[in-house]
Design a protein around this nucleic acid. Structure first.
Lengths: 336, 336
DNA sequence: CTGAAAGCGCTTACAG
DNA sequence: CTGAAAGCGCTTACAG
């Protein structure tokens, strides 16, 4: 009971047609440098003629590599993870590797990952995005003996790639302090532990620090939590507009929220920049179109570097643990 | 350059320790019926002693099966897909199969799936959730010669499992018509083609039909589109409350929106049921806690049946194409 | 119910 | 730069 793949041409057929050995075909397949250019072309032509597709299972079996990395992430439903993934995929493509995606989704679902034989552990390396593997281990002690890298998160123990969110919050706060009026921050309601990310709390922290330097205190009621959505931003904006004065400075902590806020400000007929300042975070591709002042963070780049670190480890790199911290940049546009 | 897996015990070691042949160990591994109970126990004990883990790559290679199905879905960021996935996983577990997840995410990202060698096509079967494979083919003609099943979607050509959304909308409309006042529907803004789902438009359609039967026409401005989020529901509710009269009937088309609406109704100090009726859709586990009247749909069950159909096909079932349509049930609670 | 043996399609030293 | 050969760890008829 084998599926239709098995009737296909093999490396043997390619070898025969091109008049070389299987070894050479294999070398061509794996971009091995020691192949004469002429031979390579011969083999490639034969592959094309036969419409040859290597049997991935044979390859994995023979080499002992899965050519796959496992990507653990809270979910895959917003632009941030889409962009991280894009960076990861671009980098992995260079090595003929693929990501296998494991969205954790809910605390209950973590059980699926407690079995060390689970599909999630059949890969050559592990990428944790916005997730702390040690917190996860704590609940489900499983053995991860292969390389681990973190993206959008920090740890002393593993290579990691992240944005300095505290600095981002600080820059937002500092800039907004150049205006007068009341100050607000809109945060994302967190996932439940251990899927929670500290990102938004760090932005809050930096924001507070900046305000404090100017002697400004942020009242608790000016810290507003909503869900990650346009509507979340809109609703927060309406709440602010109902109760606050006429000069407002709002740090929306992500562009999607900022967009919701901006829409409501406009709907209310208020003047952006003169009456209300709004700063987002992310610098999503569309932020420019809406004139959203924001903190730029290189999301694809983070994914790319994380994948790069991981591939280095998979290929045997044994150097010390590394951390790259990206500094967010304030991009001034019409919203502030 | 083989990774640490290769130093592990093999089927050979287990055979030696338990004093049987490799064939028999393999049979135990695959739950083959023709193994004496005593032998099976012997083998299992040896496996435990050696902490034996079968080499998945060898297994796939030798059998020609990937023991994997590819699940294509728009994204994996909300409870609906989490629950579908849960059902799929439960069913696949029975067969020792695993899902490989392929969230399409954006139209641009579809390019990744145009290569017939892509990881997405290395599996034994394909599950399309909320997605129409024919629309996808149309953009990227790729050859899918292995079984295909649809969940949360309909097609004449493939086995499929879906909810009768038109009926759901109709039931919501019919029930709300038993109250007087103004009528509203809140919809989800769609993904861009070809990732769009027709689900919400079908609910709208059924809703309109029910109203029409009672001679009620739904004005265009009472059809409100928002993003899929709590905030979306809240914002829609506020818009409705600002402009509408005192007796309102709102079909929120999913529980998350309904919850947002209910929260705003309460905040506005209005009386649910007496002044405002709200109906959701889904019957999420938490809908009961919030007293949300809703249309129940069996989400995990859909995932389960879809996976079941697919496994049947993978195992050689050749019968005619099947479609299961689940009828949503109106669950009356305090919100309407 | 069980075993011996062939085979799955690659990769990888090794020798040249 | 290339080839012959061994080997990766399973599954699967086949024979008994």
């Amino acid at each position: 009971m084998r599926n239709e793949n098995s009737s296909k041409n093999t490396i043997e057929d390619v070898a025969r047609l091109s008049g070389v050995s299987k070894s050479t075909v294999s070398r061509v397949l794996n971009n091995h440098p020691n192949v004469k250019e002429k031979t390579r072309r011969l083999v490639l032509r034969a592959m094309r003629q036969l419409n040859y597709k290597p049997n991935i299972h044979a390859r994995r079996f023979a080499s002992g590599n899965s050519y796959t990395i496992s990507v653990f992430l809270p979910e895959i439903g917003n632009q941030f993870y889409g962009r991280i993934l894009k960076g990861v995929e671009e980098e992995l493509d260079k090595y003929g590797y693929d990501p296998a995606l494991f969205p954790l989704l809910s605390r209950e679902r973590l059980k699926r990952f407690s079995n060390p034989n689970a599909a999630a552990y059949q890969s050559d390396g592990f990428l944790f995005v916005s997730l702390d593997p040690e917190k996860l281990y704590h609940l489900n002690p499983f053995p991860l003996s292969r390389p681990i890298v973190l993206a959008d998160g920090y740890s002393d123990k593993f290579d990691c790639v992240y944005v300095d969110n505290r600095l981002g919050g600080y820059l937002a706060g500092k800039y907004l302090c150049s205006f007068s009026g009341e100050f607000f921050i809109i945060l994302i309601r967190e996932f439940e532990f251990p899927l929670s990310t500290r990102v938004f709390l760090e932005r809050l922290d930096g924001f507070k620090t900046a305000l404090k330097e100017k002697g400004i205190k942020l009242p608790q009621r000016n810290i507003i939590s909503v869900d990650f959505s346009l509507g979340g931003g809109q609703i927060a904006a309406r709440d602010i507009l109902q109760t606050a004065g006429s000069s407002l400075n709002i740090f929306a902590t992500c562009d999607l929220l900022a967009l919701g806020v901006v829409e409501e400000i406009r709907r209310a007929g208020l003047s952006l920049k003169n009456e209300v300042r709004v700063i987002g975070f992310d610098d999503q591709p569309w932020a420019k179109d809406y004139g959203i002042t924001t903190l730029h963070q290189p999301i694809e780049e983070m994914g790319k570097m994380a994948a790069h670190f991981l591939m280095e480890r998979i290929r045997g790199y044994k150097g010390v643990t590394r951390a790259i911290s990206y500094k967010p940049e304030l991009i001034k546009r019409s919203s502030a």
